[in-house]
Every structure is written in structure tokens, then in C-alpha cells.
Simulated scan of single mutants.
Amino acid sequence: MEIANLVVSHKKATLEEIEKAWHGDCRALIERVLRYPNVSECAILMTCNRVEVYVVGTETEKTLKDFAKLMRVSERVIEIHKNDACLEHLLRVASGLESMMVGEDQILGQVKDFYNISKQYGGIGDILDVVFSKAIQVGKKVRKLTNINKGSISIGSAAVELAERNLGTLSGKKVLVVGAGEMGSLVARALAHKDCETLIANRTFSRAEKLAKEVGGKAVPFNKLERYIVESDVVITATASKDYIITREMLEKVVGVKKEKILLIDIALPRDVEESVADIDGVELYTIDDLREISEENLRKRL
């Protein structure tokens, strides 16, 4: 019996390539892998900068390569780890060592969440149960015994830093945050100390209100995004939507009204902003790929 994983991450893949590997439906993906007769267990991990599939069975490396082809993921961007290397990789992931923002805490919660999702959909058996439980324990212990998360930044706070660099300052600016989930909350909290006006839009208005109250911002109706994009100096999107939240058609209307440039920072996966928006004059679009430089600078400061 073997254990192996297939990894598509920020280390080798672009955002577009990671997005192609992300197929959204966790249950369908797990069931698809379990249909291989030589696979007895399967777990998945999907974040804004990685997609990973863990399997227990026989001929695991060949199976994962076949699965990558089936999912149309280029062999150039995949990594496959087997047995001890697989276990070491998961421990590194849970500890924050494999993150784009090294040491960030969010990944440990994501490992827990996807362990539970994989268990719920019948992918977790005796082996992966022990492996993921141990990885979660190690992730907690590493943070307790070391300073790995001291001074680290999240994807959300990196997005805020990118906005600040682009505008010179956020003081006195108006920032629209689209999404009030985990990532949107990180963005909003990072903005709380920037002396700017923070607007928060979310499909469920009560969640936007709750987050706005926490950070001293203002909740705005999700169905009036166009209006608030016009009013804002920067828009940071971080939803869990499978569909585009901001489309080219929407931005073409906004450009006709707004005289200043439109600054968009999309840190969602799948993406919230239609890619072709970047081709519109007067629009600047940044994605997770553009946060790499900030990540590297943060790591250098901590070494």
C-alpha cells in the first residue's frame, strides 16, 4: 500500500494554471478519484494558491499522472510526492512552510476544513485519517514552538499592501472589499488601521454588516456593485463564487462614468474578475500572481 499526492501550486504554476486545476465540486472530484480500482482513499486540498490530491492505494504515481492528464493539467506544473516525501510535504503545508506567504496561519484552518470535507464525502479511511490528524497536530505544534508565524502576512494583507504601493497611500481613500468570508475578512482587518473608508459588499448582507461593524467599515448592497466601484479608489475582491463577480460588460459601463483609473485586486480562486477586464483602457487589474514580490520581501525581512 502506498500514499502519494499530486500538487499544483504557486511554486510552479501561474494563477491561470492553478485555476484550471480547480474544478470546484469537491464531492465529484473525490468520487472521480475513488473510481480508480487501485485507490482506496482520497483527500483534497484547495486554496487560492494550491490544489492537491492525496491518495492511498497501489500504483499511485501512475494513477495521479493519469488523473492530471484527465483534468488537463500540464505535467510541467505538477509535483508528485510518494510515501515519506508525501507525508513530509503535508507536514510542511500544515506548518505554513509551503505557503506563498510563509508562516501564514490560514493554511492550517484550510487543511482542517478539507480533511473534514474529504471525510464527509467518503474519501478518508484509516490511513488518511491518521495522516491528516497528525499533520494538523504538527501544524499547531510548529506555531507554538517556533516564531514561524511572527511577522508573517496573509494574502489579504498583501493585497492591501499592493493597493497602498499603487496609490502611494490609503489614507483618505475609499476601498471596496467584495466578499465577507475568511479572505475578505483578512483584507478588511488589514484595512482597519489604514485611515481609509472601508466599504464591504457581500451577497448575504448580514455578513457584510457584521464584518463592517468589526472593522469600523460600512456594509453596502451587493446588487449595487457598479455604483460603489465608481465611488471607490480601489476594489479588492475575495469571494468564493464560481462565477465572475465583476465582468467586462460591467466595467465598460463603469469606465464611461468614472474619470479616474479603476484599480482592481482580485485574490479569489476561481477568479472574481473576468480576465479580459485588464484590456479596458483605464482599468488596472492585479491577481494573486502579483503578490509574489511582496511575499518574497516579507520573507527576506523575517530572515
Rank of each mutant, 00 (worst) to 15 (best):
39 V>G: 00
122 G>D: 08
265 I>C: 02
194 K>T: 10
166 N>H: 12
277 V>R: 02
37 P>K: 12
34 L>I: 03
271 R>P: 06
285 L>R: 02
100 M>C: 03
29 L>N: 03
84 D>H: 05
148 I>Y: 08
272 D>C: 05
226 E>M: 00
79 E>F: 15
4 A>M: 04
11 K>Y: 03
107 I>A: 03
294 I>E: 05
125 G>W: 07
46 M>Y: 07
209 E>Q: 15
105 D>S: 12
58 T>N: 09
264 L>I: 05
217 G>A: 12
267 I>R: 02
142 V>K: 05
273 V>I: 15
45 L>S: 01
151 G>M: 14
85 A>F: 11
264 L>R: 01
218 K>Y: 13
265 I>H: 04
192 A>T: 11
154 S>T: 15
74 S>P: 05
287 T>E: 06
154 S>G: 08
185 S>I: 06
27 R>E: 15
173 K>R: 15
108 L>N: 07
19 E>R: 11
22 W>A: 12
201 A>M: 09
93 V>S: 04
288 I>A: 01
172 G>T: 13
298 N>M: 10
173 K>W: 11
208 A>M: 10
163 A>I: 13
288 I>D: 01
83 N>Q: 07
298 N>H: 10
73 V>I: 15
53 V>G: 00
20 K>C: 09
242 K>V: 08
18 I>W: 07
123 G>F: 07
99 S>P: 11
81 H>K: 11
126 D>T: 08
34 L>W: 08
82 K>T: 14
236 I>A: 05
187 V>N: 10
17 E>M: 12
43 A>C: 08
9 S>P: 05
22 W>I: 05
115 Y>K: 04
205 F>K: 10
227 R>A: 01
261 K>D: 07
290 D>F: 07
78 I>M: 13
237 T>Q: 02
7 V>S: 08
156 G>T: 09
34 L>D: 02
150 K>Q: 14
205 F>E: 08
135 A>H: 02
282 G>D: 01
276 S>F: 02
162 L>A: 10
44 I>L: 11
57 G>Q: 07
53 V>F: 10
106 Q>N: 10
242 K>L: 15
17 E>S: 06
122 G>N: 05
45 L>A: 01
18 I>M: 14
54 Y>S: 00
10 H>Y: 14
116 N>D: 12
59 E>M: 02
75 E>V: 04
1 M>R: 03
54 Y>N: 00
96 G>R: 08
263 L>T: 00
277 V>M: 01
227 R>N: 03
91 L>D: 02
210 K>T: 14
57 G>S: 03
287 T>H: 05
145 L>H: 06
118 S>L: 03
287 T>K: 12
69 K>V: 05
216 G>P: 14
31 E>R: 10
192 A>Q: 15
236 I>Q: 06
134 K>Y: 06
290 D>G: 04
151 G>S: 11
208 A>D: 11
76 R>T: 11
89 H>C: 08
231 E>D: 14
219 A>T: 10
293 E>L: 09
220 V>D: 11
85 A>H: 13
224 K>F: 03
102 V>Q: 09
66 D>F: 00
41 E>T: 00
77 V>E: 12
202 N>H: 11
41 E>H: 02
94 A>Q: 08
146 T>A: 10
282 G>H: 00
